[in-house]
Every structure is written in C-alpha cells, then in structure tokens.
C-alpha cells in the first residue's frame, strides 16, 4: 500500500468516525437533532437544558474517550504483535492492562493522592502497575532464551492473577463494590474522570505519532532474530523502549476506561490484511480503525440497551470474539488468523 492509498483509507475511516459520532451524539435515551447537537458543540446556544448537558457532559466526552482508547489500544497491540512476531500479542494478553487496573485499584482503595497533581494519581498508579506486569512478563520471556510464546503465556496468567487480586481488593476494601471492580476489569466508558481527558489524549496521540515515526525500526524488529542482529540495531534497547511507550499508552487508556479487550488483538490483525505489515502505514491505520471500532461498539451498546448501562467491553468482546471465530473460515493453512 502506498501513501496515496493510506490517505484514502484514513479518510474513509475518518468519515465513518464523523458519521458515527454524529449518530452517537443524537441517539440514545434522549433524541436530539443533528443541528442542535452541532450548535451545542460549537457553543452557538445561550440556554442550558437537558439536551445541552447530555451533549456536553455525557455524549461528547464519551465519544472522545472511545476514540482515544480505541486508537491507543489498537496502535499498541500492533506494536506488540510486530516486535514479538506473534499475532496473539497485545496489552491484554501480555497482562499489561490487568497490571494497570491493579495500579488503579491500589490508588482508589488506598486513597493516596499526589498533592500537586491529584487527579493524575490514577494514571500514574496505572503506569506503575503496568510496569510491574511488564517486568514480570519481560523477564520470564527472556529468561534463558527469548521466547514470545512464553511471554504471552506468562501474560495470560499475570492477567488472571491481577484481575483476581483487583476483585479481592474491592471486596475486602471499604468500597466493597464488585460492580465497580467489574467496570474496570471489563472496560466501561461511563466511569471516567473528565479532567483526565486532555492529558490522556495528549499522551496517546504523542505515543501514536512516535510509534508511527519509528515504524521502520519496528519493521526491522519484526524480522527474524538472527537477521536483525546483523542489520546494526540494538535489539534489546529498542524492544525495551517500545515496551515502555506502549505500556504508557495502555496504562493511560486503562486509567480512563478499564480493560477493553480484543481491540489491541483484533484491529491490527484485521488492518494488516488490508494495508500490509509496513508499520509506518500499519500503526496510523490501526489507530484510526481502533478509534472507529470502539466508538461504534459504544454507540451500539448505548442504542441497543437504552435503559440499562452495558459496559462497552461486553460489546467489544462479543463482536471481536465472533469476528475472530468467523475469520477462522477464511484463514490460510499456515496462519492462525
């Protein structure tokens, strides 16, 4: 795929994002016309009523958060799959998301707050939790000899361990709210802190730009081990660098909306089939597609179940799961996808 085709692909996805956003703004328990919604967003109304409140404080932030989280998770999944040369790798299967939620749970339950940057306490703890998972999974993965399967298998168990610890912590703590813990563990777009949005949007966007710019390094890392070593690259240093950047993106998105599964795994595998494996093109394509997928999933969850709150993770898991099973009918013999 050349740059022109990439531009067309991104423009198509961008168009879908805009259409879905408009649909999402106007539909739900309260039906609002597109003109009113756009006027409210452009601050062209002087009154304050339910419509204004719903658009400004519920639906619009939710759209922004789903785009940030979807793009961040898909881009980091794409990088993990390339550097570990394994289509199953993503921040969920590597246990990094669960580590982040563990960090979030520690911050929430202990009530610790950094005085100068109080509202950033949760993302900071999420990142620390993510780094605990990364350290465990990375060192098990490289122990004796590097093996990405070993890394992913350890990630799956780290995921179970941290998820269970988080549930235990919420049950035993004064919060004593399993429902709340469940929201973090399955991913929800209805319990985020609005103050965090601009900061996390900045981090995720910056992360995606860095990853896309360094796409050629990721391309080289996706070649065979013995080949990479003779191309003049410092493999270990670069792999660690990309682990830190992607963990940072994962941790910040998790601190907004919990663990949203399948996006980091499914989107890169799907987009690869359309745009190929060149990470300079693949990473931005995944980011846009991930944003669209999560936005669509959230919109569907709100439209289909208007009267009850369905965590978006439930929808992404169902769509993603069925889509993966469906893909099995079209896969080639050699590949698992």
């Amino acid at each position: 795929m050349n740059k022109k085709t990439l531009l067309i692909y991104i423009l198509v996805i961008l168009f879908l994002i805009i259409v879905t956003s408009l649909f999402s703004l106007t539909h739900g328990l309260l039906e609002i016309s597109i003109i009113d919604a756009v006027k409210i967003l452009l601050r062209k109304v002087s009154y304050v009523d339910n419509t204004v409140l719903v658009i400004k404080y519920i639906r619009f932030p939710r759209i922004v958060v789903s785009c940030i989280a979807g793009s961040g998770l898909a881009a980091s999944g794409c990088v993990f799959q390339s550097i570990l040369k394994n289509p199953l790798a993503d921040s969920f299967t590597l246990g990094i998301s669960a580590g982040s939620v563990f960090g979030v749970a520690v911050a929430l339950i202990s009530g610790i707050e950094f005085s100068s940057v109080g509202f950033l306490t949760i993302p900071i703890f999420a990142f620390l939790g993510a780094m605990i998972s990364v350290l465990i999974v990375y060192f098990i993965g490289i122990y004796k000899d590097f093996n990405s399967n070993k890394m992913i298998l350890s990630g799956v168990f780290v995921n179970y361990i941290f998820s269970s610890i988080v549930i235990l912590m919420f049950i035993l703590s004064p919060i004593n709210n399993v429902q709340f813990a469940f929201g973090w563990l399955i991913g929800s777009l209805s319990q985020f802190d609005e103050k965090l949005i601009p900061y996390i949007a900045f981090i995720v966007l910056l992360g995606i730009i860095i990853l896309s710019l360094l796409g050629n390094i990721i391309n080289v890392l996706s070649l065979d081990e013995s080949k990479i070593k003779t191309l003049g690259i410092n493999v270990e240093k670069n792999v660690k660098f990309f682990f830190i950047i992607t963990s940072f993106i994962t941790a910040t998105t998790v601190s907004l909306c919990g663990i949203i599964g399948f996006i980091g795994f499914l989107i890169p595998n799907m987009v690869k089939k359309i745009v190929g494996n060149n990470n300079q093109i693949l990473i931005p394509s995944c980011a846009f597609t991930g944003a669209f997928f999560l936005l669509l999933s959230d919109t569907l969850s709100r439209i289909i179940f208007t009267s009850i709150l369905i965590p978006v993770g439930v929808i992404t898991n169902i769509i993603g799961g069925f889509f993966f099973l469906f893909l099995q009918f079209f896969r080639s013999k050699k590949n698992i996808l």
Partner: peptide, 23 residues
Amino acid sequence: SNKNFAKIISFLPQYIDTTLSLT
C-alpha cells in the same frame, strides 16, 4: 559496535520468515 559491524558483514540466515505482508 552493532552498527559498525553491520557496515562490514551482512548475513543471510538459513531460515527467514517471509510470511510478512511487506512489498
């Protein structure tokens, strides 16, 4: 250093993954 060595010797391994969808 890795970099200087890569300017002196290039290597074609016995097995190389060519399933990547790169042009």
